[in-house]
Amino acid sequence: MNERIVFCEECRNDVSYTVIEKQMTGTIKDEKYIYMGKEAHCAECGSEVYVDEINDYNLRALYDQYRKKHDIISLDELLKIPEKYAIGKRNLSLLLGWGEQTFSRYCDGDMPTKQYSDTLKQINNDPVYYDVLLEKNKQNLKTAKAYEKSKKAVGALLGAKEHGANKIDLSIEYLLCRCQDITPLALQKALYYVQGFYYAFYKTFLFPEECEAWIHGPVYRDIYYRYRDYRFDSIESSGGCDDSEFSSSEKAVLDSVAKNICCYSGKVLEKFTHSESPWILARGELPENVSYNRTIQKDQIGNYFNAVKEKYNMINPNDIKKYAQTMFQQI
């Protein structure tokens, strides 16, 4: 319960009021939403009174339901981003290549588009993705000091996670270091082949992440959002080639994929995967040009690459070359 003083039109006087929670219905763009809101009532006569803060609360609760339904970043998540990365609202807009006031408008309650929302979600959830953007677009910031301050903040976040870095991130950096010209499309396929061939030789998967059967082949969703702004450009490596986190068997597969798979372009590797059963089975009857993101089951990946290993009489990961050359000749 909350008590303050407002004007009551029934009592024609300034009065205290009480607040109750109530299920409410609101409409946005001809769609109805049910949400938990608040009502203020005069402590003297019990009639409903208008309170600015409560009206704002109800509008936010209504729009929160809209955001949830349409998978738009919440206002709470959005407001955390500038503090998290120590960057001003205007500089963040400039970093993203948006209008200078765009992010500020979102903080004031304007609704971002789904595309912009996805970008903000990825930034909020993935410091690595933000770090990539910061390096790529640092020239957009107003001052070098703004860059340095934000770089320090994201560095602290990444440093705190350093010892818990997952295998897929370590694999990405390893591949980027050894492949000087790898695009986001090629990286996705390289990760897929690392998974498949590692399982074929060692009967376990290198990392737990699931991949999906997108139009252009197998895709790891979070990795796509991290590097999508590179589009057709090569991804830059963020540091040296540290292989201390990998066992000899892991390095053997990674090195062979880097040498024998990453030598092909992303479009060539896409054609490879379109002729392989894991992607085909996951897509089912869907036409190739229809966007529908079905998970490629790990057992399908394991079964396929086990069969590849046997068919090509592979003794060690260096023999991946046989498969890659055959696939290239067939496309």
Rank of each mutant, 00 (worst) to 15 (best):
L176I: 07
L176G: 07
I172M: 07
K149D: 14
I182Y: 08
H163Q: 13
L170I: 14
C177R: 08
H216E: 00
I168G: 10
D181Q: 12
F205C: 01
L170W: 09
G196S: 01
Y193C: 02
L187F: 03
A160L: 14
A153L: 12
I168D: 04
L175P: 15
L175Y: 08
A190L: 10
G196H: 00
A213H: 03
Q180V: 13
A146T: 15
E210M: 14
G159K: 12
T143P: 08
C179H: 09
G164N: 08
Y198C: 01
G164W: 06
L206H: 04
C177M: 15
E162V: 15
Y192K: 00
Y198V: 05
Y174R: 11
V194M: 03
V194G: 04
L187S: 04
H216G: 01
F201M: 07
K167H: 06
Y174L: 13
Y202A: 04
P184S: 00
Y192A: 02
A146S: 15
C211K: 01
P208Q: 09
Q139E: 13
T143H: 09
W214Y: 06
G155L: 10
A165V: 09
K138V: 01
L185V: 02
G164H: 07
Y199N: 03
K152M: 08
S150A: 09
L191R: 00
K189C: 03
S150G: 08
L187D: 10
L206P: 02
I215S: 12
V154A: 02
H163V: 09
S171M: 09
Q195R: 07
A146F: 11
T204H: 05
Y193I: 02
E209N: 11
Y199W: 00
Y192D: 02
L191C: 01
A213C: 06
V154R: 06
A200N: 00
V154G: 05
F201Q: 03
E173F: 10
L187I: 06
Y147W: 03
E173I: 08
A160W: 09
L158W: 12
K142W: 11
K203M: 05
A144M: 10
H163R: 14
T143C: 03
Q188I: 02
V154T: 07
F205K: 02
G196V: 02
G155N: 15
F205E: 05
F205N: 03
T204V: 06
P184V: 00
E212S: 14
Q180P: 12
E209A: 04
E209K: 04
N166I: 05
T143F: 08
R178S: 11
G217T: 03
K145Q: 13
A190W: 06
E210K: 13
E148Q: 12
K161S: 14
E148R: 04
A190Q: 13
D181P: 13
T204D: 12
D169E: 12
P208T: 07
A146Y: 10
G217L: 00
H216S: 00
V154K: 04
I215C: 14
I168V: 10
R178E: 15
A190R: 14
K189G: 01
Y192T: 05
K145A: 10
G217P: 02
L206V: 05
Y198G: 03
E210Y: 12
L170P: 11
E209F: 00
A200G: 01
K167M: 14
K167N: 06
